Amino acid sequence: MESSAILPLSQLPYVYPATPNTNKAYPFWPCKRRTSQPTRLHCSKMFVPGFGEASPEAKAAKNLHNFFTYVAVKIVAAQLESYNPEAYEELMEFLSRHSLNDGDKFCASMFRESSRHKNLALRIMEVRSAYCKNDFEWDNLKRLALKMVTDSNTRLMKDYVLETSSAETEK
């Protein structure tokens, strides 16, 4: 006999009451109450607690910003390697001393190193901007991320079911 972990709609009021306690305040809840039905909350997006002042998208954008710096450094290094080996060596030496974890800090340090490094920093920032605007496939990122999450969730649920069903049959 099959069993389902999904509750029928008739049982939902026991999990989520139809009329929430109106005395209880929801100070962190970003949803607005409807004036015609003051007891129901209506949201267009999921509230994500624990991110402070920045949204998850803002945190992801910051990480992508640093990643674009990394990509730009790789592109500039590949270009320099073929037509300006001396500048390539300077970039590689600078990379060995400075972390690329923070793209802006990396470029700021490069500006202050020397006038030759300043030109490299300007080139990296130019490539970073161009890559972000013209070459990065944003729609592909969304598709790949969604597939990754879906595949991962499916695999984890399958592994759990296989693990628990084999444990029950061994008893």
Rank of each mutant, 00 (worst) to 15 (best):
74 K>Y: 03
98 H>D: 02
97 R>L: 15
60 A>Y: 09
100 L>D: 01
14 Y>G: 12
110 M>Q: 04
33 R>D: 08
98 H>Y: 11
14 Y>T: 14
54 A>L: 15
48 V>P: 05
40 R>C: 04
93 E>G: 00
67 F>Q: 11
118 K>G: 04
79 Q>F: 05
111 F>A: 01
82 S>I: 14
122 L>P: 00
112 R>I: 00
44 S>T: 10
102 D>N: 15
32 K>C: 04
71 V>L: 15
60 A>L: 15
36 S>G: 03
108 A>K: 14
99 S>N: 05
17 P>R: 12
28 F>H: 13
112 R>Q: 06
95 L>F: 00
84 N>T: 08
108 A>D: 14
50 G>R: 05
33 R>E: 11
17 P>S: 14
50 G>S: 04
23 N>A: 12
15 V>M: 13
82 S>P: 01
28 F>K: 13
18 A>P: 00
15 V>W: 12
30 P>S: 11
46 M>C: 09
30 P>C: 10
87 A>G: 06
124 I>A: 02
69 T>D: 00
98 H>C: 03
28 F>V: 08
110 M>A: 06
19 T>H: 09
51 F>P: 01
121 A>I: 02
19 T>A: 07
118 K>Y: 07
16 Y>R: 13
103 G>Y: 00
58 A>T: 09
35 T>G: 06
122 L>M: 12
61 A>N: 10
41 L>M: 14
49 P>K: 03
100 L>R: 04
31 C>D: 12
40 R>M: 09
36 S>W: 06
24 K>R: 13
102 D>W: 05
64 L>G: 00
19 T>R: 14
83 Y>Q: 13
120 L>D: 05
106 F>N: 01
53 E>C: 02
115 S>F: 09
88 Y>S: 03
81 E>F: 13
49 P>S: 10
76 V>I: 15
14 Y>E: 15
13 P>G: 08
59 K>F: 11
92 M>Y: 00
89 E>L: 09
20 P>R: 10
39 T>N: 09
